[in-house]
Structure formats: structure tokens, C-alpha cells
Design a protein around this nucleic acid. Structure first.
Lengths: 237, 237
DNA sequence: ACTTATAAATTGGTTAACCAGATTACAAGG
DNA sequence: CCTTGTAATCTGGTTAACCAATTTATAAGT
């Protein structure tokens, strides 16, 4: 009964094909920044797909900042020339599904930065939120319960305190997949959880003291375990 | 005639309100990972919004990995418990629009990493692609033309060679906004462009030699100029 | 000729009916 | 009581007609 997933893959394929065709069209018509694309209706007719499919493709390209759709007016190519447009569309179509290794790599990179920024920029309110997340985590671990969610919320609270909305956004994007992978590979063992409490506390204290170097180091220590698991999984698969 | 934009803001507001209500509903009904959400029709009726609005909100939550919509079956909450769900939805709703400073900070962070990974993992094909992008950039600069697009494509080629699909994806997301901001603030001056050619070449050579340390350093040098512009803009605004 | 006023056509967004696959309920058969 | 077959129902996806705001074309006035 894997047919469910197949339907989604199929839908993604048509979306990719539409994106590709929109790219070709921009090339063919030499559309420059600010120019108007043909209407959704015309595109759906030209590409022989449903209009809703066209809309979804446009929405995706809007997400990547390549198009800008304005109600009752039209869809316009963003302030990006044809050359960059071509390159980016090609890259978007080539994008592979994220693997666990990429996930961990990216997470560590982001968190070593957000913790540093958080220690420099955190407000009192940020600090309170982090403390709340820390306490919620500790309590649950001490009760012997699984606390993967509280763990990640602690890290997200730091990301928010970093004052960098993009890194915060990126952390939000990768967090769910981290949670599912953690549970899948049983990364968060209960023996480790007790150790993690003090590690979390150290991180919190460093942020409180506004010591960026210490904060980064404590986060690095915290991730040492994760590194190992990452490599173990890499070897075993 | 700023009404165009207002329509979009309004639409985003209703989307946020729907996301918030979905969150409340998951709480109220104590829905756990794998549980099924009410159908789109019921939600649209309950929330008194159009079904397409509901669909868009669900799609957004799907993007953040919180929901999973399966054709002809239903929408399911992802492998994330109520606690993480609450925290993440709250964070998603709070997300601010990215500012230029965040953009530059994130770009530098990502690129110092991707260039390192690229120097370690690049295939021969990757190297060729990077070389092509480099040549395209150099040619255009030497002809005295604006080459912001080719500049960014060079950096994207490196991101692709990094072998980390998530960082590659993130680079793609922030690139268009970098381009528009560059053109807005005239960051890429023509005097700088000539200097940048040799900097790009240095980066390329380091990747070719598979020297991660050198690659990172050369990228850092390349960004020195950008740093300065960032602070200038910060001061002037 | 140029501006202004007005009507027709075009646009993205919305709505409601419809579709095919998936699920559920239930009855028949063992 | 359990399995199995079947029909009714429910689901996300698709389609086509419709909407209001916008843009364009056209005509009127000066």
C-alpha cells in the first residue's frame, strides 16, 4: 500500500515539470525583472495542466523569491535577471532530499552560531523563555520520561534569542526532521538525558553571563555525543 | 496604490489565524503523532474561511514538517508531540520578516561552511561547473558589465558542490534577496568587481587543491568587503 | 493634442460541484 | 466469532464558473 506516497511523488514531478517550463518560457520570451508572466489560465492551457498545479508551482517559485504574484494584476519576475533565474531554477529542480548527515551538519553549524548570537543579544525576556524551556526539559527527564520535544524547544528558544530571523526560520525548518530521526535511531538515550541536563544548564548560564565564547564551547560539548551518533549511523547504513 | 500589497498582508493574516486555530485544535483534541485532523471541508466550515485558505495553511505547516497530507485519506499530524507542536507553531507565527543584517550574517555563516565542504567533497563535475561559473563571471566583469548574477551563481555552484542538500537549499532561499539588496544598495561596485575576480579565482584554486582551510580563508577575505558594507548600511539606516 | 471619464477585458483569488482513490460499515458466508 | 465481499461514505485533489480589483481600450470634453 505504498501507492499513497506515489501519488505525492507524481504530483511533485508535474510541479517540477511546470517550474522547468516556466523557466524555459522566461528564457524564450527574454523576460526581465519586473516583466509580467502570462496569466495562470494561459499557462495552464499552454502546459496542459490544471490551473491549481500552475498556482502551486508559482507559489514555490515565490518562496524562492523568483516570482511575485500580485492579486488582480499578474505574476511578475522578481528583481533577478535571466541568467540568475536559469541557474537558480536548475538548482531548485536538482535539489535532493535531505539526508540525515546533512541535517546534523546543518544543525550544528546553525546552533554554534545562534548560541553565540543569543549570548550577545538576548533580552531579559529571551532569557526567561530559555529558562522556562530548560526547566520543562529537566523536570521531564528527572521524571524518567522521554524529553526529545522539550530538548528541541530549548534549542529553538536559543534560536529565537539570536535575533536572526533567518537562522531562526531555518532552525524551525530542520527541527521536525531532527525529532523524527532522533526517535527513529533512538539518539536520545535515557542515560544521555541526565548528562544533557547539566550541559543545557551550562549553555544557559553562558547565555545569561553574555559570554559568547563559553556559550559556543558548551554547545560544542553538548554536540559531541551527537557527532558520534552521526558517524555511527553513517557507518551502519 | 499600495493596496496591492495590503491584499497580500491581509491574506497572510488569515493564514496565520488559521494556523493558530489548527494549533489550538490539536491541543484541544489532544491529537498525537499520526492522528488524523478533521477534513479540510470541516475545518473551513469551523473556522469560517474558504477551503483553499485552509489548504494553504496546511501546506505551510507541511513545509515546516508539522503536518502530512495524504491524498484521498486525510491530513495527519507529523511524528511530533503536542508540546513541540505548540512551541513550533508559536515560533512560526512570531517569525519576523528577514532584515538585511540577518541575511548577510546567515550567508557568511553558510558560505564559510559550504566552501569548506566543497573543497573536501567536490567531484570533477562539480569543479567543472564552478569553473564555468567563474569564467562567466570574469568575462562579464572584464567587459565592464554588471555581474551580480554571475557572482551569485559562482557561490551557488560551490554550495551545490558541498554535498549538503540542506545548506544548498538554504543558499537558494536567501540568494534572490541578496541580489535585490545588492542592487538596491549598490554593494557590488565596479571598482570592487575587478578585485573580486582574483578573489574568486583564489577560492576556486583552493577548492581544486582540496584545501579546506585555505578555501575558508579565501572566502573570508572575499567577504571582508561585504562586512564593511553591511555595517555602513546598518549605520545609515 | 491632451486629459479625463467610462466601459470592456484581464487578472489572481474564491467558491462549489465533481472525481478517483481510500476508508468504513455492514451484511453474508463460513 | 471471524473472515470476506460489497456498497456507501469520506478524503484530498481537480475543475470550471464566478468575483472583485485592476488594467487596458475607447470615447468625450476641453
Amino acid at each position: 500500500m505504498k501507492l499513497k506516497i506515489l501519488a505525492k511523488v507524481d504530483s511533485l514531478d508535474t510541479q517540477k515539470s511546470i517550474i522547468s517550463k516556466i523557466g524555459e518560457l522566461i528564457n524564450f520570451k527574454n523576460l526581465e525583472p519586473g516583466d509580467k508572466l502570462p496569466s495562470e489560465r494561459m499557462l495552464s492551457e499552454k502546459f496542459e495542466v490544471s490551473r491549481s498545479n500552475v498556482r502551486e508551482a508559482i507559489q514555490k517559485l515565490e518562496l524562492y523569491g523568483l516570482l511575485d504574484s500580485i492579486p488582480q494584476s499578474g505574476t511578475f519576475v522578481a528583481n533577478i535577471g535571466v541568467i540568475a533565474m536559469n541557474g537558480m531554477i536548475e538548482d531548485i529542480l536538482r535539489l535532493e532530499d535531505p539526508d540525515f548527515k546533512s541535517l546534523v551538519e546543518t544543525r550544528i553549524l546553525l546552533e554554534l552560531k545562534t548560541v553565540r548570537l543569543a549570548s550577545l543579544r538576548r533580552t531579559e525576556e529571551d532569557l526567561e523563555k530559555i529558562k522556562e524551556a530548560l526547566d520543562a526539559y529537566s523536570e521531564k527527564v528527572l521524571r524518567g520520561e522521554d524529553a526529545v520535544q522539550e530538548d528541541l524547544l530549548f534549542h529553538l528558544a536559543i534560536a529565537r534569542a539570536s535575533g536572526n530571523s533567518i537562522m531562526n526560520n531555518f532552525m524551525l525548518i530542520i527541527t521536525p526532521e531532527i525529532i523524527t530521526n532522533f526517535e527513529k535511531y533512538h539518539v536520545c538515550d535515557k542515560k544521555l538525558a541526565n548528562l544533557s541536563i547539566s550541559e543545557h544548564q551550562d549553555i544557559f548560564e553562558a547565555i545569561k553571563k553574555q559570554d559568547p565564547k563559553l556559550a559556543k564551547q558548551k554547545m560544542k560539548d553538548h554536540f559531541t555525543v551527537l557527532y558520534q551518533y552521526c558517524y555511527n549511523i553513517k557507518k551502519s547504513t
